[in-house]
Amino acid sequence: MRDLDETDVELLSLLAEDARRPFSELGEAVGLSGPAVSDRVTRLQEAGIINRFTVDVDRSQLRAGVPVFIQVELDSAAVETARERLRDADGVEHLFVTAGGDVWFYARAEAQNVREWVARLFEGIDLVDYTVTLVDDVEWTPTVDGVEFALTCAECGNTVDSEGETARIDSEVYHFCCPSCLSRFEDRYQQLEEGA
């Protein structure tokens, strides 16, 4: 899969709204058969465009803590450590890293003492500063509308178009903008394997 066509983008949009829709229903919406939709979804998964299907849990219905939005200012060396810790932390639902290197996240904190909860989350990580904002309401509406999709060359970072190449190397799918990028990538990959 090199180019994403309008049908692929429409399927992504429909799946973003409800990933549990049957392929037959998706097919009716885009003018394809159920098996054709299944093939396209499989190709989108193999291309790494669809990473997983998930559940959007409304935690407010479960009464799981106080909803907060936290902005954290860290030393740049600590950003990746903080990101990894927050990714696995209970209660953290959405994690963002700004271009300036700040970490922002939406979570459901323990109601008793938010300061202690944050201190435990960042234990051993030097915090410069942080701000906690109590959230009144959350609306999460993932969409692919208005976004232009393009695959990126694994070798040079250029956009992969219809002239590009796709290769499976050790069960991973990689996309390349041209045959020479594919060749350079394969050569370097082989050298790394031989040196290992």
Score class of each variant (00 low, 15 high):
Val68Trp: 02
Val68Ser: 02
Gln71Pro: 13
Gln71Lys: 14
Gln71Trp: 12
Glu73Gly: 09
Glu73Leu: 03
Asp75Glu: 14
Ser76Gln: 15
Ser76Ile: 10
Ala78Ile: 02
Val79Gly: 04
Glu80Gly: 05
Thr81Cys: 11
Thr81Asn: 12
Arg83His: 10
Glu84Asp: 09
Leu86Cys: 02
Gly91Met: 06
Gly91Phe: 06
Phe96Cys: 07
Phe96Lys: 07
Phe96Trp: 12
Val97Ala: 03
Val97Gln: 03
Thr98Gln: 02
Ala99Ser: 13
Gly100Met: 07
Gly100His: 07
Gly101Met: 06
Asp102Gly: 11
Asp102Arg: 00
Val103Cys: 06
Trp104Tyr: 13
Arg108Trp: 01
Ala109Ser: 09
Glu110His: 09
Glu110Ala: 01
Ala111Gln: 14
Asn113Ile: 03
Asn113Asp: 15
Val114Met: 04
Val114Lys: 01
Glu116Lys: 06
Trp117Ala: 08
Val118Lys: 06
Leu121Glu: 07
Leu121Gln: 01
Leu121Thr: 00
Leu121Pro: 06
Glu123Asn: 08
Glu123Gln: 10
Gly124Ala: 03
Leu127Ser: 10
Leu127Glu: 06
Leu127Phe: 07
Leu127Tyr: 04
Asp129Val: 05
Tyr130Gln: 10
Val132Lys: 08
Leu134Glu: 04
Val135Pro: 04
Val138Glu: 03
Val138Thr: 11
Thr141Pro: 01
Pro142Cys: 02
Asp145Trp: 12
Asp145Gly: 12
Gly146Arg: 00
